[in-house]
């Protein structure tokens, strides 16, 4: 079998490759590793290049988003990857922002709940969560919005167990998940209704 190169799904897109930003890219052919030593670097967040200033390099992407870039929609419930409240898309893949070192996101595309909201990509998910009663204290809600969005764009017709498995990394302490599942079903129904082929895939 041929040796197949596997790269992160979105990295194939032009401009989203492994360039460490203003800290200076290592020249891959020259074999010299690049370093980030400065406390100021740039991230691409929600399609915009944002300067991160006076940062400690040990800060998580979650901390950088929340405390340095004013994007507090990603939440800090556990900071150990056990709750999903800080779910973001990193190069198009849903991850916990608390488990990404801020500097390690240099050169990657970071999309947060704020960016997805502004783009209107998740408006129906958000409306369904409110209408179905899937929001109580709301601390987990942005993470659910990101995770539901990630699932439904990949598997629009996910069945109930697939929905549960895809959301099993997002803890909610208020709702018992019943109204959240209801909201996902509502979105699936309305998307399938408005676009015949959309809901059929799996």
């Amino acid at each position: 079998m041929p040796r197949e190169e596997r790269v992160p799904r979105e990295e194939r897109e032009e401009g989203a490759g492994a360039s460490p930003g203003r800290a200076g890219a290592g020249d891959a052919s020259g074999g010299v590793p690049a370093y980030v030593q400065a406390d100021t670097y740039e991230l691409t967040v929600n399609g915009t290049r944002r300067a991160v200033e006076d940062a400690w390099l040990g800060e998580s992407l979650l901390f950088v988003l929340r405390e340095r870039l004013g994007l507090s929609g990603s939440k800090n419930a556990c900071e150990q990857g056990e709750c999903g409240s800080c779910s973001v898309l990193l190069d198009g893949v849903v991850v916990c922002a608390c488990l990404v070192l801020g500097v390690d996101a240099i050169g990657s595309r970071v999309e947060t709940v704020e960016g997805l909201s502004a783009a209107g990509d998740v408006a129906d998910i958000q409306a369904a969560l409110v209408d179905a009663g899937g929001v109580q204290c709301g601390f987990c809600t942005p993470g659910f919005v990101v995770a539901v969005h990630d699932l439904l764009r990949r598997v629009p017709g996910a069945d109930e167990m697939a929905v549960r498995e895809a959301l099993s990394g997002n803890l909610c302490r208020c709702t018992g998940y019943g109204r959240i599942l209801e909201a996902v079903r509502d979105v699936q129904r309305s998307r399938a209704g408005s676009d015949g082929g959309h809901g059929a895939g799996a």
Binding site: A23, A34, Y35, W56, L57, G58, L101
Partner: peptide, 22 residues
């Protein structure tokens, strides 16, 4: 509070070099 330097290599050899240099 270290973590004063973060290497972002693109090849294994660069990663090894970064480990050796730091």
């Amino acid at each position: 509070m270290p973590v004063a330097r973060v290497a972002v290599p693109t090849t294994v050899d660069e990663a090894v070099q970064a480990l050796r240099e730091t």
